[in-house]
Write a protein that binds this DNA or RNA. Structure first.
Lengths: 157, 157
DNA sequence: GTTTCCTTCATACTTTGGGGTGATTTTACC
DNA sequence: GGTAAAATCACCCCAAAGTATGAAGGAAAC
């Protein structure tokens, strides 16, 4: 990119810039003692103001705004209610079996598939089957989504 | 260090370089066409450039206190928990940063690391870093546990 | 007795998650 | 000006999660 070029020639550009400034300062002094006409100076002033404004505009336009992130949590709801009532109806509607429900509950407790398998005395592959079936029935892609949705539907606590 | 200065004044240096280039171009033209008559134009140009640079410098210098509010929209669910109050105290105690909190919230929404990365416009590796830090701060091993614990502590909804 | 569903398990494969390390750049603060 | 924390990203490696497919035993239903 263009910035890459500039960052690689920082010193050169800096001294070039300083040199330029110095030269212009000299030039400016030179003309300062020659030009007495006031109209001319007004003209110069106008130019200066216009281009300074342009510079400000450019700087504001080309620099990304310093973002101070303020997180506004608006309407954040999730069901974390203490009075949980099992929604058997919803559970049946989705065709979730008893065993799958067990797996789902342990899932929401943060257990890994391996840990669930250990707890239920079955193999890891079995849990994988259950979880895959669960994801399909809940129409989700990941266990985190499954837990989130199941809680929302009051299938688990 | 010197490099710190350069990195902090990239734009200024850039325009300095451009200024230098333009100046040399003008100088070259001056010698080429014997420009005594063009001195006025050169002077005007110089004024314009100098004040534009000044404008840029001013803009960069004087726009420090810039605060931008970023509203993060979140999904609203039917079975909501209206009595969620963000436990800032707990959050600070655990040393969880703003960005980490964002990631944590999206995690609990069931998004994968890749999806979170997309949503926050950062790379996958960044999200991995954030989540790793989160797991350490929350003293958990998996994202599911992180979500569970964070909800329990009222850090997220 | 056949059908259907649940549960169990397997193998093979791909994707995602997570640990570890290190680096750069911003930002903020003293 | 120096320091510290936060945010960003990269690379490697391994573990866990998830997909696809198939299969076998058991219980209940018809």
């Amino acid at each position: 990119m263009l910035t890459a070029f500039f960052s690689k020639n920082k010193l050169f550009i800096l001294y070039g810039g300083l040199l330029a400034l110095l030269l212009f300062l000299l030039k400016w002094l030179e003309y300062r003692f020659v030009v007495v006409n006031h109209a001319f100076e007004i003209y110069i002033g106008a130019i200066a103001i216009i281009f300074m404004a342009l510079g400000i505009w450019l700087a504001l336009k080309l620099t990304k705004p310093k973002v101070k992130t303020v997180i506004i949590e608006k309407e954040v709801f999730v069901n974390a209610n203490p009075d949980f009532v099992f929604n058997e109806n919803e559970c049946n509607k989705l065709g979730i079996s008893k065993r799958e429900l067990e797996v789902l509950q342990l899932m929401s407790d943060g257990l890994s598939n391996g840990e669930i398998a250990e707890k239920l005395f079955v193999s890891l592959n079995t849990i994988k089957s259950h979880s895959s079936n669960l994801f399909e029935k809940l129409d989700v892609k990941r266990r985190t989504q499954a837990v989130e949705k199941a809680k929302r539907l009051n299938i688990i606590s």
